[in-house]
C-alpha cells in the first residue's frame, strides 16, 4: 500500500500537471471562467484519465510496441466521446459551456503522457492511484484559477445556479478583463511566480 500512497500523492503537488509540469493548459485556461466549468471539466478529465489508465494498465502486456500510440489514442478518444455524449444528454447546460474543449481532452498531453509513461509500465492499482492523484492535482489548479477569475471578473460567486456571495465593492463594477482570455494568462503567470516565491520549483 506504500507505493499506492506515493503514486497518489505525486500528482497533487510535487508533479502537479498544471503548475509544475505546465502540461494540458488549454482547457485550464479556456474554460476557467466560472466555478461550474472548472468543476465540470475536472470531473470529465479525471473520469477519462482514470478509465484510460485502468484499461491501458490491464492490457499493457498484450499491446504490440509498434502500434502502442495509435492504440492508446483510440482508447482515449473512445472514452472522451463517451463522456462527451453523456454530458450532452444528461447535463446539456454544462456541455454547452464547455463546448469543444470536452472532445479536445483527447489531445490533452497529460492523458496520453500518463498512458505512455505510467499506465503502460505499472500495475492497475498503481495506475489508479496515479490517475486519481493527477486528477486531483488538475482539479485544484483549475478550481483555484477559476475562483480568482470569477470573483474578480464578475464580483460574485455562484455555484450551479446558487448565489453564494458578492465581493464588496466589486458586485456592480467587476474587473471584467479577468473573464477575457488575457485574464487567464495573467492569473496563471502571477500564481506561478507566487509558487516560485514560496519556494516551490516549477519546472521548465
Amino acid at each position: 500500500m506504500h507505493s499506492f500512497t506515493k503514486n497518489f500523492l505525486r500528482g497533487i503537488i510535487r508533479s502537479n500537471p498544471t503548475f509544475i509540469l505546465l502540461l494540458g493548459l488549454c482547457p485550464t485556461l479556456a474554460v476557467s471562467t466560472s466555478l461550474d466549468n472548472a468543476v465540470g471539466m475536472s470531473v470529465a478529465f479525471t473520469c477519462v484519465l482514470l478509465a484510460s489508465n485502468i484499461i491501458i494498465s490491464l492490457i499493457r502486456n498484450h499491446v504490440p510496441v509498434r502500434v502502442r500510440i495509435p492504440v492508446f489514442i483510440v482508447i482515449i478518444a473512445t472514452l472522451v466521446t463517451i463522456v462527451d455524449l453523456m454530458l450532452q444528454g444528461f447535463i446539456p447546460a454544462l456541455s454547452k459551456s464547455l463546448g469543444m474543449y470536452i472532445p479536445l481532452i483527447v489531445v490533452n498531453c497529460i492523458i496520453l503522457g500518463r498512458a505512455e509513461a505510467f499506465a503502460s509500465k505499472n500495475s492497475t492499482t498503481n495506475s489508479i492511484a496515479d490517475a486519481l492523484g493527477i486528477g486531483i492535482g488538475f482539479a485544484w489548479a483549475m478550481i483555484l484559477i477559476s475562483l480568482i477569475r470569477q470573483l474578480l471578473g464578475t464580483g460574485k460567486l455562484d455555484l450551479f445556479g446558487r448565489h453564494l456571495f458578492t465581493v464588496p465593492g466589486l458586485g456592480d463594477n467587476p474587473v471584467a478583463i479577468f473573464l477575457l482570455p488575457m485574464g487567464a494568462f495573467f492569473v496563471i503567470g502571477v500564481l506561478l511566480a507566487l509558487f516560485r516565491w514560496m519556494g516551490v520549483s516549477t519546472g521548465e
Binding site: F185, F186, I188, G189, V190, A193, R196, W197
Partner: peptide
C-alpha cells in the same frame, strides 16, 4: 524581472499583454 517572475511566469504575463 523580479526573481520569482523570471522564465515562465513572465512569459505568461507577456502573453497577457500580447492578448490585450
Amino acid at each position: 524581472p523580479p526573481l520569482a517572475f523570471k522564465g515562465t511566469p513572465i512569459a505568461f504575463i507577456t502573453a497577457m499583454f500580447l492578448g490585450l
